[in-house]
Design a protein around this nucleic acid. Structure first.
Length: 846
RNA sequence: GCGGCCGUGGCGAAACUGGUAGACGCAGCAGAUUUAGGUUCUGCCGGGCAACCGUGGGGGUUCAAGUCCCUCCGGCCGCACCA
């Protein structure tokens, strides 16, 4: 038999699956449903190894569930709006539309070469007018429901991408894409009121038991809920100052009141105080710059004002402007209690302010308790606090809140770190915001019969600023209300809006409303979602928000879109540098004796650590090269082997060759087996056949369990083991051999679908593997009748015995004591105690 | 600093609720087949001549610890002055 021709075979089977429309999902079915989804790609032009890993995992699950009898939805689409298309358009003079659709066509072909079991009939791109038409309707629905609002605010302006950004998109003070330092601007923009659902989004995390803990923690921190008290200080100029605290219990330990440098009162005072103005200016410069925040000293400036303690009008606290108080949190002002807050303590020591402990740990003496240089934040009883003395922290918090609420100067509040989602973007390649600005009527939604607001056919990138804004003929329109002259909103929606509901649209992508409720209610939630950890906050939080908002509008039944989430690791590769420190790509390299040399020049190249594949480090491997050389099954098998899916995987040539050898090995086992009886033969139950039969049935049980739990690397190892057993059992009964080989083929099918089809055909089957149910195991064959039991003496292994399964304890004990190594270790002494763990181990205590 | 995850052969890793540490793969070594290379097949492959010793270090619980507890060291990721 000839070697397996992957190229030929893969093309044929892909055509066969297509012709039979095997992966087109019926809308209705009696089978249980399973929605498998991988994060859809941005159409950059080529697929990369990260896509290969992501889509292979999803495909394994989809094929596995389909074989198990589920009605599987496994769609694919394109996250197609965004800046790279604009940059390409500007650099190459093409239209972003043409550039994007050409890339989609190229990437679609590459994905098809991977043999993914996708329902291509449901494919769409977010830049399709049909899609953004529905998204505009959705936006207006949100608007009518009060989920969308427009207001002027300090916004994050990215000077490189020339647009505003949401809070989530500013990382360390820089734009998430451009890396440029973000500037502050005051602009009137559209916001989604995500804070409206802050509590629900937080509580919902507890229901997501099939999400990684890590992602839930990150979202919890991002939402940043803290419960506390908001109350007023009366200042010496008789004005009131609102502050927020989570520790009202420590109010009698207060030694100052602190304002953010950006607080309006601080700004006001600075007008008449040059020293303060200079201090505020200094704070601005340190600001959000970089990691030096950590080292930044606590600094303050005493204003001319004092604040009266809310429970003692004669007790005056200095009002200070402090560099560590954030305007964006709470009210931008708080009181400082140095004994129980590290920042306040550092600050107080520097400016010689009082440090009075008011919470004392149990057992400590309130008169002598001293916090030293470390603020005490643990539990304890109140002291030095008049009417609070002796209370617990919780009792004191409640007491202070109750008294201030009664006095009308305070209220218990919940504070969130989460801000509303700013969605306006001053970019032309996005979903136009369907709003019209009329001098007379104000902001007017575009009427339904005038939707979609289409992007102009041609976009002129030569203009300064947003091309949509410069395109007078596009933006000029009439007001739907008064029919007078008006202009369109020239901003587009953040592209994260596009990806916040695409999974819902997949459930019926042709429906003439955003959501076909019947289809959505049948398919949602997504049972298994797979993608990169980099979306832990942005995409996954926004998608959760959209789903909740849509749920409130009755469009979908579910509150959470993704029941199961899996975040896969990155694909890495060694890095190479020449003598001048320039990155060198793997293609230009030749390896000899563990050293690397440049192919053209013969010069030695330094091998660097394995890092995430990236263009900048030139350590990428193009998937199409590997597919051309070994075929899709080999690259898929590699992505699933050895490394657990959540960890980073390293691509190596040797590993790829190993995978290719296994593909050939399976092919040989399936085609070179001499004397196999015809398909359907019942294997004999004689003793010689039993070990092989057991190996096959155990593999079925183990692989099934591993795939259920996404342990692909273990499933792979099970299949290697089965192949080894089959290889060593050439003389075994043909029926048992056929059974084992068929198990190997069927179990490997989700991972190497083309190879499996080809082998299945060679084995004489008329139906496709893709139409064949998942194999079942016989429990009688996964259990064994004899077991090897290890014998320990004082916890050290001294020998082993073979016993019938579930043998009597006294028989096991007798056999253990008779074992040579055990006798030697005991040296004639009588055992004090013998512990027998059935079918496992015997430990003799001497 | 806070939070999360993790530390096992030359490498990637297995080890279910504590119960034979290193399955499986890569690399390596030896042999067979081959004119040769490649392929394929067989065997070996944590350390030590051995008794024994070995899961980052130290301590503990237990008949028994990679697994549980304490502590220290190291790494990765996230947040970062959040009152």
């Amino acid at each position: 038999m000839a070697r397996y021709n992957a190229k030929e075979s893969e093309r044929q089977w892909q055509a066969e699956w297509d012709a039979r429309a095997l992966f087109a999902t019926p809308g209705h079915s009696d089978k249980p449903k399973c929605y498998v989804l991988e994060m859809f790609p941005y159409p950059s032009g080529r697929i990369h190894m990260g896509h290969v890993r992501n889509y292979t995992m999803g495909d394994v699950i989809a094929r596995f569930r389909r074989a198990q009898g589920y009605n599987v939805l496994h769609p694919m689409g394109w996250d197609a709006f965004g800046l790279p298309a604009e940059n390409a358009a500007r650099d190459k003079g093409v239209s972003p539309r043409d550039w994007t659709y050409e890339n989609i066509a190229a990437m679609r072909e590459q994905l098809k070469m991977m043999g993914l079991s996708l329902d291509w009939a449901r494919e769409f791109a977010t830049c399709d007018p049909e899609y953004y038409h529905q998204q505009q309707k959705l936006f207006l629905d949100f608007y009518k429901a009060g989920f969308v609002h427009r207001h002027e605010a300090d916004v994050n302006w990215d000077p490189v991408d020339m647009t505003v950004l949401a809070n989530e998109q500013v990382i360390d003070g820089r734009g998430w894409r451009s890396g440029a330092l973000v500037e502050r601007r005051k602009l009137s923009q559209w916001f989604f009121r995500i804070t409206q659902f802050a509590d629900e989004l937080l509580a919902g995390l507890d229901t997501l038991d099939r999400w990684p803990e890590k992602v839930r923690v990150m979202q919890r921190n991002w939402i940043g809920k803290s419960e506390g008290l908001r109350f007023q200080f009366t200042l010496s100029n008789s004005e009131k100052l609102d502050v927020f605290t989570t520790r009202p219990d420590t109010l009698f330990g207060a030694s100052f009141v602190a304002l953010s440098p950006e607080h309006p009162l601080a700004q006001e005072l600075a007008k008449k105080d040059a020293g303060l103005a200079a201090f505020i200016e200094e704070c601005r410069h340190v600001g959000t710059a970089e990691a030096d925040i950590e080292k930044a000293e606590k600094k303050g400036y005493a204003t001319s004002l004092t604040a009266a303690h809310p429970f003692d009008a004669d007790w005056e606290l200095p009002v200070m402007v402090a560099n560590f108080v954030l305007m964006g949190y709470g009210t931008g002002a708080t009181f400082g209690c140095p004994a129980h807050d590290q920042r306040d303590l550092d600050f107080a020591r520097k400016y010689q302010l009082n440090v009075t402990p008011v919470v004392v740990p149990e057992g400590a003496d309130p008169r002598t308790f001293d916090v030293g240089q470390e603020a005490y934040t643990g539990p304890g009883l109140l002291a030095n606090s008049r009417f609070l003395d002796g209370m617990t922290v919780d009792q004191a918090k409640a007491e202070v809140a109750a008294r201030l609420e009664k006095a009308g100067t305070g209220a218990r509040t919940v504070n969130y770190r989460l801000r509303d989602w700013l969605v306006s973007r001053q970019r032309p390649w996005g979903c136009p915001i369907p709003m019209i600005h009329c001098a007379k009527c104000g902001v007017v939604p575009v009427p339904a019969d005038q939707l979609p607001v289409r992007l102009p056919e041609t976009i002129n990138f030569q203009v300064k600023g947003n091309p949509l804004d410069a395109d007078t003929s596009w933006k000029t329109t009439t007001c739907p209300a008064c029919k007078g002259p008006a202009v369109r909103d020239t901003d587009t929606l953040d592209t994260f809006a596009d990806s916040s509901w695409y999974f819902t649209r997949f459930t019926n992508p042709d429906f003439d409303e955003p959501v076909d409720k019947k289809a959505a209610d049948y398919w949602l939630p997504v049972d298994q979602y797979i993608g990169g950890i980099e979306h832990a906050i942005l995409h996954l939080l926004y998608a959760r928000y959209f789903t909740r908002a849509m749920s409130k509008l009755g469009m979908v039944k579910v509150a959470e879109p993704f029941a199961g989430l899996f975040t896969q690791g990155m694909v890495c590769h060694e890095t190479y540098k020449d003598a001048d420190g320039n990155w060198v790509s793997p293609e230009e390299i030749e390896k000899r004796d563990g050293k690397a040399f440049e192919r053209n020049t013969g010069k030695e190249i330094t091998i660097g650590p394995s890092e995430k594949m990236s263009k900048s480090k030139k350590n990428t491997i193009a998937p199409e090269t590997i597919i051309a050389e070994y075929g899709a099954d080999t690259i898929r098998w590699f992505m699933l082997s050895d490394t657990p899916p959540e960890r980073d995987i390293e691509w190596t040539d040797a590993g790829a060759e190993g995978c290719w050898r296994f593909v050939q090995r399976v092919w040989r086992l399936a085609t070179e087996s001499q004397g196999l009886p015809p398909a359907g033969t019942v294997p004999s139950n004689d003793d010689a056949a039993k070990p092989l039969r057991q190996a096959a049935h155990r593999a079925i049980a183990a692989v099934t369990d591993d795939l259920e739990n996404l342990r692909f690397n273990r499933a792979v190892a099970q299949l290697y083991t089965l192949a080894n057993v089959i290889g060593g059992a050439e003389k075994v009964d043909g029926g048992a051999r056929r059974e084992a080989i068929e198990a190997l083929v069927l179990l490997s099918a989700p991972m190497m679908p083309h190879l499996a089809e080809q082998c299945w055909k060679e084995l004489g089957h008329g139906k496709l593997v893709a139409e064949t149910p998942w194999p079942k195991y016989d429990p009688a064959l996964t259990a064994s009748d004899s077991v090897t039991i290890a014998i320990q003496v004082n916890g050290k292994r001294r020998g082993e015995i073979s016993m019938a399964k579930d043998a009597q304890t006294k028989d096991v004990e007798a056999a253990a004591l008779a074992e040579d190594g055990v006798r030697r270790a005991l040296d004639g002494k009588a055992p004090k105690k013998v512990i027998v763990v059935p079918n496992r181990i015997v430990n003799i205590v001497a």
